[in-house]
Design a protein around this nucleic acid. Structure first.
Lengths: 250, 250
DNA sequence: ACCTGAACACCGTTCAAGT
DNA sequence: ACCTGAACACCGTTCAAGT
């Protein structure tokens, strides 16, 4: 099937396909978005690229290296959805929403990334965005860092958790999701009075409500911690909080 | 290697081993606690039990079924670490701490469970515990359920995230963890002023601080939401909050 | 009735061989 | 210089064969 070799530098030696880190990353995003069981395997990737699966190892040391590169792309996609000029709370809220949206677009990637760090450009940009937001909120030093991590890690974990759930084969997912309306409905009223008293609510609650509660809890925490910090450094004027602390440093 | 067969009912037909769901679950916990790459594979399990790997399929439909059973055991172990009689906030705090402790004891299990529901007895007990705590805090109905899920899902996700990180081969883990003190230290001061200004703090922050901030954020949210709810139903006496609402219903 | 073990359809990865 | 593809050491799972 493979034919000839034109000597144009950088041109393909194969019919229609050319191999480069870029091309491999883009193929990964395509198959990841398509979903399914083999959504991110080297064999599936070889198929998508029209080349031998192991050719990928010419451009990435191993699959983990590729994953980090692909994941960093998805971080960039989430970032692009966050408009400039929003006040810090809306900025973080939007970042959380975009992270979830993009994460669900590439579930294999985000489920594998939930406990990772890409150490790549777009991650730097996200860290900078969150640090800027918590600074604007009024946090600095170790406080800024702890609360940035609290927020960032939490979003990452939630998105990964949700993506992993979505990836399950329908039968298993259905088992997990319908538990609230099936198994929990059969709970013994004596041993589990609270569950028994809330079966309807347990079955009706949505992921959106849960995510919103979680994000707002974190944003509230940042705001309150900033208020505490201000009360210490500036015991008098705790009235009008953030006009000056809002100034960006570039 | 396998020998003879004594006909005692329930006794082993093999030297030293006997197969039952119970024995398989306990073997799973042992190998999971021991850690390593093959910490939870059917072949490793067969080795631990001194039987053929596929014998497990006599007692569990598939590996997922076994995982849920094993995971439910670990939930029980976490529950056992939560003393009775604690006020709601301490009860949830202790549950979070115990979940992390037990989760790190069986990292393979907790990383696989992060997005799952066991639908088994100990999960019921944990749900009941959390629902009881948020009730004591002053939440009811949909509010109680949303905040229970917020708390429960968040703890599960964090523990899974942390366990997955711990499971990485040393080289990859070191890459991820040292990122803060290596790659981030090299960040361009022009493009990433906040990162550059906080490199020391980024490298110094601990998982314990981050977890504590996260848990306290969730507990604060529950408390404040309960205060809002009280203000609506009982606009007058928002002063002494929880003495009566504390009453358990059994 | 219960366990065995060969076999199947997958993984990620290596490396000698091709061009 | 770059890609190929057989091969290796793994997975979870099935099923005919043993006892």
């Amino acid at each position: 099937m493979a034919t000839h070799s034109s000597a144009r530098p950088g041109a393909s030696k194969r019919s229609g396909s050319q191999l480069s880190p870029e091309a491999i990353i883009e193929a990964s995003l395509r198959v990841a978005a398509r979903g399914g069981d083999d959504a991110f395997t080297v064999r599936r990737l070889g198929q998508e690229l029209g080349c031998d699966p192991t050719a990928i190892y010419r451009h990435f040391r191993d699959k983990d290296e590729l994953l980090l590169s692909v994941a960093d792309r998805t971080l960039g996609e989430a970032l692009d959805g966050v408009p400039h000029g929003l006040p810090w709370r809306d900025r973080l809220r939007t970042l959380a929403a975009e992270s979830l949206r993009v994460g669900m677009k590439y579930p294999v990637v985000s489920s594998l990334m939930a406990s990772r760090t890409t150490r790549r450009p777009n991650e730097f940009r996200i860290v900078e965005l969150i640090l800027g937001a918590v600074h604007e909120a009024g946090l600095s030093g170790p406080d800024a860092v702890v609360h940035y991590r609290m927020f960032g890690d939490s979003v990452l974990a939630y998105v990964g958790q949700h993506a992993a759930l979505q990836m399950f084969a329908p039968t298993e997912r259905e088992g997990d999701e319908s538990a609230w309306s099936r198994e929990y409905r059969l709970a013994d009223r004596q041993r589990f009075p609270y569950i028994a008293g809330l079966v309807e609510e347990l079955a009706a609650v949505t992921h959106e409500e849960i995510y919103a509660a979680r994000i707002e809890a974190l944003l509230d925490k940042i705001e309150r911690r900033a208020a505490e910090a201000r009360a210490v450094t500036d015991p008098a004027g705790a009235g009008a909080p953030s006009a000056e602390t809002t100034a960006q440093q570039r």
